[in-house]
Amino acid sequence: MSDVLLDVVDAEFRYARGMAPAASGINLQVRPGDAVGIVGESGSGKTTIGRGLVGSLLPSAGSVLVQGRRWKSVSRRDPVRRTVQMVFQDPYASLNPMLSALATVAEVFRVWDKVSADVATSRAEQVLAEVGLSGEVIRRRPALLSGGQRQRVGIARALACSPQVLVADEPTSALDVSVQANVLNLLLDLKASRGLALVLISHDLSVVDYLTDRALVMLNGEVVEQGETQTLLKNPGHEYTKTLIGSIPGTSLTTAS
């Protein structure tokens, strides 16, 4: 039990009372070093689960435990919040346009570690270097960064909390394929170097196949299939999973290489 970082038991999520649940019947455990994929189409409830995992949406039934505690009992400044951090799909929309990359990350250290501005800045420089950003670039505002650089800032901001789980919601969907490769490599490196657990929300099965060990397939707010990623993709049990796999463009390409 003690090594379970996130424990989701029969959780159901609604955005308003009386509204149909956006996701229900969710069961998931995340332990250190795990890599879990959540796949499905728009509106299937992927992001809702992500919000439930980081505690920004409380379950309307069932429970989500973070290090054994319900999110509801975790106050805004409780250090347990640091356990799970989120990386967003659109780094441009999720970064403060008025803050430089360095200031964005330094703010986390000032707020959480209550250190002086100088210490916060030097720690921020370290984290940014860890995601491959250094030099003059880190003093730029988001508008002057490339898409890949912005996503690195988003990842650095999450890492600044020293999380044990990274919930990445479509982290590469807005990026070109060569830039995506860089970000995926970075996530792979962080998984190894920090022993991070990763929850990857993505509609791209090739990315999920590449990065994760287990996966949930979502349809209309429900899990239709859950299991080892490779088994799931090779021998899909549910019709919907088969449809998803059959819709991936360029399968001829994949087998050729």
């Binding site: 995506q180 196949d209 290489s257």
Partner: peptide, 13 residues
């Protein structure tokens, strides 16, 4: 650079 060209947990080009 496509993830589909690489094995799991193998760095992408």
């Amino acid at each position: 650079a496509r993830p589909a060209t690489r094995g799991r947990n193998e760095r992408l080009t």
